[in-house]
């Protein structure tokens, strides 16, 4: 294993000041996006929503060391909750998003409480089976979900009763950006908390954590529920931004894609989601429409190379380059 930090390298005090000043810059730049890239709002919104989703997954994969291939199950629960509520006339975006979080969290509690006492292949299988189960239920319950045709008649009212979800997607864009910002702050606080530290302890050496008196199952269930709520929020955002919910939102394909996006950027690094999701989605937007075979061929090769040669994703590579530069400077 390499010695690259999973909690980010320890910066000296001076540059931490600089970092604090630099933090709002990417956010402001993103907020200005509709000015110089008009027409790209829907894609940009998709990316923001997926970053929220990837952040929720990072809590599990990157911090708690829980590998899941069924995270879309929780995303889809949120999307369908918000979508179905709107079909039945409860159309306020924030209210339905809140309900979506609650439903996803409850789903996460039930599944997590049952699954997280297992580990390795069994746990992986259970995460997959849980999402397949939800997918099949949504697939068969056509009276509620529309089945394979997707949920019809999704319609949300204006945000705060003022900003309607417009055709260009401006409202959806800023709404998603604001939600992402709040989620980012929450996740950042969470991983810096004693709870967040203990998650990394469980990931590193769960036997030792048990030996210092840590209630491992309880911690893992709590983080699973939190992650589920955030995934459900991302699902609700998706439903609101696109005014549509499809079975894809519960699919194994989405579970796999979001994991790939996160790993591509670098898991356990907080910013990995911000790098991996846009990289993946821009590439997909450019390549997959032309020829899906080439897209999957390229993606597959990238994954294999990533695992073989560059664990840690794009951020992992960047960290190693930075470390090499710093060492050279130190030597000079």
């Amino acid at each position: 294993m390499t010695a690259v930090s999973t909690s980010g390298p320890a910066y000296p005090a001076a540059s931490s000041q600089l970092r604090r000043l630099a933090l709002p810059l990417p956010w402001l730049a993103t907020a200005a996006l509709p000015l110089f890239l008009p027409g790209y709002e829907p894609l940009a919104t998709q990316i923001l929503v997926m970053i929220v989703f990837a952040l929720s997954l990072d809590l599990l994969v990157g911090y708690a060391g829980i590998v899941t291939l069924g995270h879309a199950g929780l995303f889809g629960m949120g999307a369908y909750t918000a979508g179905i509520l709107s079909v039945y006339g409860i159309t306020d975006p924030l209210l339905t998003a809140g309900c979506a979080m609650l439903v996803a969290a409850a789903t996460g509690l039930v599944f997590g409480w049952a699954m997280l006492r297992t580990k390795d292949l069994t746990l992986l299988m259970l995460t997959m089976a849980s999402a397949f189960l939800l997918y099949e239920i949504a697939n068969k319950a056509t009276w509620l979900t529309g089945g394979e045709d997707g949920l019809q008649g999704v319609n949300f009212s204006s945000l705060f009763g003022t900003f309607a979800f417009d055709f260009r997607g401006i409202t959806a864009f800023y709404y998603s950006l604001a939600v992402l910002f709040v989620v980012f702050l929450a996740v950042r606080a969470l991983i810096a908390s004693p709870f967040g530290w203990s998650l990394r302890g469980i990931r590193e050496n769960s036997a030792r954590m048990a030996a210092i008196g840590c209630p491992i199952l309880k911690r893992r269930v709590i983080v699973y529920v939190i992650s589920a709520a955030l995934a459900g929020l991302a699902g609700a955002l998706q439903a609101q931004a696109t005014q549509f919910v499809a079975l894809y939102s519960l699919s194994f394909e989405l579970s796999g894609n979001i994991l790939i996006m996160l790993i591509l950027g670098g898991s356990g690094r907080l910013y990995g989601a911000f790098i991996g999701v846009p990289a993946f989605m821009f590439a997909q937007d450019l390549l997959a429409k032309q020829d899906p075979a080439n897209w999957f061929l390229g993606l597959g090769i990238i994954l294999i190379v990533l695992v073989m040669l560059a664990p840690g994703g794009i951020l992992g590579i960047a960290e190693r380059v930075m470390a090499a530069i710093r060492r050279r400077r130190g030597a000079a």
Binding site: L259, L297, V307
Partner: peptide
């Protein structure tokens, strides 16, 4: 991840 890559 490796095996998903191989599938793709």
């Amino acid at each position: 991840l490796f095996s998903i890559g191989l599938i793709f």
